[in-house]
Design a protein around this nucleic acid. Sequence first.
DNA 1: CAAGAGCATGTAATTATATCA
DNA 2: ATGATATAATTACATGCTCTT
Lengths: 214, 214
Amino acid sequence: MNSEVDEQMALISEYYPDGIYSQFVPEQGVASTKPRRRRRKNKGCEGGDGAAALRKRKLSDEQVNLLERSFGSEHKLESERKDRLASELGLDARQVAVWFQNRRARWKTKKLEEEYSKLKSEHDAAVLDKCRLQTELLKLKEQLHEAEKEIQRLSDGFSSNSPCSSFSMEVAMDPPQPFLGEFGMGLGLEHVFYASHHDNCAHGLMEWDSLYYM
Amino acid sequence: MNSEVDEQMALISEYYPDGIYSQFVPEQGVASTKPRRRRRKNKGCEGGDGAAALRKRKLSDEQVNLLERSFGSEHKLESERKDRLASELGLDARQVAVWFQNRRARWKTKKLEEEYSKLKSEHDAAVLDKCRLQTELLKLKEQLHEAEKEIQRLSDGFSSNSPCSSFSMEVAMDPPQPFLGEFGMGLGLEHVFYASHHDNCAHGLMEWDSLYYM
DNA sequence: CAAGAGCATGTAATTATATCA
DNA sequence: ATGATATAATTACATGCTCTT
């Protein structure tokens, strides 16, 4: 019922005459100084089948499965493994190499996404923690203030002073002390600063969606 | 001296016989459930040039520039703009659409990387902040403790009690109070938890590099 | 030094699916 | 529902880099 009319339309796509790569690009006048071509093995038209050099897209599930398993055990691909896989799968060694390159790229992207999610949740937790700490801090300062008043009251109200007490009165009013010197700095991504993003509470809880159009 | 020879290369690569699309995918005996394909315009042979059906990879700088500018002003692409661009550039409307699709994908990836960097620095700053707060908190608790002792000493040493003082003695010993209920939850990426990663200080300052093989 | 292999990255195109007017 | 557009995933290719022979 799903409008899947499969009337013939051919998915081929590419055809390598294997001798035609004419250099002329008719329009699009560019200098085209040198037609130097690199590394263009005999790929394509002498593979195994007499069927003339048809690109075949979409590897089969089995092929993908094996490739995937192989990738799972090791991302790198040495010649030997490549050739073995190629013959096992009935593919070009070139295709196997390309597949691995693309797979690595995909893996990297996915990994970045995962890391982003992880970092995001950690960050949110940290921000919440900061909130909690700040609240607690405020409460403590208040209590300390009360305590000081109490002390003042007690020591003033009765005698003039109380000996053997080295209690200092300058509490709870210390400046925020800079503290951020050098740390694990400047190694990973290019521009990772410790810029004080002055994120007080209630900040930094947005979702990855909105920043699409920016 | 910077290997920036702009020899542009002019390589074509693909050749659409534009009538030959045989469907058979010779070897690779897989089930190949359905060869269904979609939408195969008459592309290629009606562009502007009389040169029959040559696919050229690598759009020219001018073409890319215009596309890029257009993309810059708006990521979406309506029919009208697409057709206009296509004719201005001497490209297929299909190619313009494809270019925009790919461009959006690229943009998204880049954006993710940027967001990761940004989030990372914010996170690091937050962790440092937490450290600072915890230090401060400890110090305050200590001071408060001292104050309590002082109060104890004062109120015990002299009279029995002091009136009009509602000072409570159970300070600085409050439990960490859970606090994380529901918040800005479950909207962006799939799995963003508020899992308490029990990250006390000195944690969470790693770089994006190591997690390659994991 | 040149040639070649492997790899990362960028780009073009295809396939598949979902969505919307 | 039919067609156009969007996204996501794939396949392939080009190119520049590094390292090795």
